[in-house]
Design a protein around this nucleic acid. Sequence first.
RNA 1: CGCGGGGUGGAGCAGCCUGGUAGCUCGCAAGGCUCAUAACCUUGAGGUCAACGGUUCAAAUCCGUUCCCCGCAACCA
Length: 497
Amino acid sequence: MADKFYITTPLYYVNASPHIGHSYTCIAADTLARHMRHVIGEKNVWFLTGTDEHGQKIQKAADAQGLSPLVFADNTVGQFKKLWEVLNISYNDFIRTTEDRHKRVVARVLDILYKKGDIYQDTYQGWYCTPCETFWIESQLSEGKCPDCKRPVEKISETNYFFKLSKYQDWLVEHIKNNPDFIKPASRYEEVSRFLELNKLSDLCISRPRERLGWGIPLPFSPEHVTYVWFDALINYISAVGDFNDEGKYISRWWPADIQLMGKDILRQHAVYWPIMLRALDIAPPKLIFAHGWWMMGESKMSKSLGNVVSPIEMAHKYGTDPYRYFLLRDVPFGLDGNFSEESIIKRYNSDLANDLGNLVFRTLTMIEKYFSGNVPVMQDQHLSAQGKLIKEKLLNIEQMVISSLNVCGFSQALEEVWSLINMANKYVEDTKPWNLAKENKTEELKTFIALLAKVIRQVGKTSACFMPKTAEAIFGQIGEATINKSGPLFPRIDTK
RNA sequence: CGCGGGGUGGAGCAGCCUGGUAGCUCGCAAGGCUCAUAACCUUGAGGUCAACGGUUCAAAUCCGUUCCCCGCAACCA
């Protein structure tokens, strides 16, 4: 087992409010971070998230509201931070690309790569759409016009700086081949490998002329240019947790990242550009790049123009933070696309949380109250039935099952494991018929039976704590080692009729 | 011949890599039970695994062909 665990989400672009996709990535990362804190200790885990704030989109959006880009970004950052608070996201650090610590490292990176000769200048022809303030290359035009607004474009020549991606293509192909677990899920690994085998990478344009775009980090060797947003943003993963020494060597307690999570849409940047940038800097690549799927809204994907963007904060308020977290991680295997609907949330809520888990806790508490006046009895193995022994066994290895599932980001799998224990327990009640034991005064059997149930519930709380932190607390609050403190049902059923 | 994903009981999916009684969740029906949030437990109905052809003793699973659905400028999880 690793002695440290560094996990990142992408830096979310602040041009719009957070949606469920953002919340999905952070909830997944948070769950892994909480899990690992439990496994290897709080001090050995670092969970980074943050915001990406430069670039033309931001500048335009800010202009539209008559705000400075930074003030505009501040507003959106506030929304993200508020959301993470509501969703119980336990990040250790929140980095903004507008912070000095980041800008300094970006400048350093540019400087190192420039001196090394991996960044070069080039002048090329292209087309400019003045109303859109956008530069297009020939192949992007639509019938010779601006693909956005369909207006005529103007031919211009521009000088920019390029990063030598192509120089490192062979290395990357090799690295990927030698590290079959570098990119997950496997289908994405195939996708990237094939892409790299079939295509010759072109060098990456990493600058924008300042006269056209002021909102960015200036190139240290050419103040007339600012850095392209992706080049800027990716560097956050190292700028947040380390720095370069005088010799240009990167020093960090946390790097390389153990897992970098992202949506499938930005896999290319993370699986191709990013490792190559690191390679050029003589920094180790991340250990694992995991691209998860998208949440679709019924038949179509979520988009602003379709007006089907769902607010995660609204969902969390309506159904509760933990049910929302649970739903996202349970309903769809991580890596695949899912269908988002309130109906499916309600379904999961009622059947898994209210009926299975909530009811198990509630009925157990009632029995402890009724049969033992609120004192949790002590278990005596000799009074354990065969079924009880099986459950006890499951109790012992459930933690290991959850760990091995989470080791490969198998969130839904891990939860299925926990729920199989819950289902066993519910059946155990049914089969044991404690009400008969009570009538027949088989007190010892009854004690052991109840004691085992209490253990099951506490174990469920323990193993699901990383998914549903508040629920785990509530469970421990209600069923202590020796006494109980019964309050209402954990998850009151949602009546849909 | 652009690329990728997919077509499995009413719904959503797993199984396919490493062929061998078609499985899970939800829904539905009947029954059981009473500790419980009309919750829990059991049983049942329901599928020619998109179609056709091939390989094989044996195919949802491998091979080929066809049909259908979804996504594929940029930005975005």
